[in-house]
Amino acid sequence: MNARAETIKAVARAEAGALSLVFRANPVPNPSSTLGGGYLTGVVQKGVVPALDGRELDEEGVGFGVPLIKRGPKTILPGSASLSVLKSGQGEIWTVEYDLNLLLRAGFGDRRSIDWPGFYWFQEGFSWLHRRYPRARGAVTRGSGLLRAFGYQPRLEVIPGAGVVRAVYTFPGSLETIHVDMSFRGVKGEGAQLVVASELGARFSRYRDSSGLHLEGSAIGTWDKVRADEASFISPADGLAFTLGQAGGAEMYRGRELSAGSLAWAGLAYVLDAGADSLSCNIRLGIPR
């Protein structure tokens, strides 16, 4: 590859006609950020975000190829990253080092965040119920809505870094496929569940996979295992689809949630097998087949 020298950047953008890819590196985590359409994930260091005619398609989704870790009931996300860009005639290579320095917590109104571990285990239990029993989801969602009426809100707080995850995004000039290589070797400590999320907005309301499964809207579920070789999310409004395949050393899950003002995402996530510390996958963008 005949490449120009690597440059450290804050924003990277690649364009191919109406489609473009964007990455914005947060130099420091900023929990007070008002970016991201007012969603909580606006604070998170997002991954590669596709845009159509300049309109970014992430909504509450975190973008493509974003690492996060779970330690028991604790979820740690990246709040900042460094980005370097290598360009060549064949395409571009974006190298990102995500700093895992945001902890998902909760609180009521202006009061300090809840520091009782039992509460987060309790919350994890409700998340499990939500995933395990589709018929109970309505009640769990209504309960969640009731809590919000009393001022309950999730929050992201800056913590000492739990480690650095290195991601390399490689794509050709046509932007048809993004190859992602991710390494979790920089994560501190052991026993964490490693996850790589690829999410865009809830406008991607149709799901198709290579086993012939077709789902729409709430039928997609919020966290269901994908057993097919390939899975796609389609935005009928934009005429765009993104497709991921199974990756060695990981299980793939699909989900979509839409709730006015708080949730608007659709996508796929890889949960790495115990002992695995790296992941490679391809994300295909294009017209739905």
Partner: peptide
């Protein structure tokens, strides 16, 4: 439990 910890009034 939340009240005892000051997380709610």
């Amino acid at each position: 439990n939340l009240a005892m910890r000051g997380a709610v009034k």
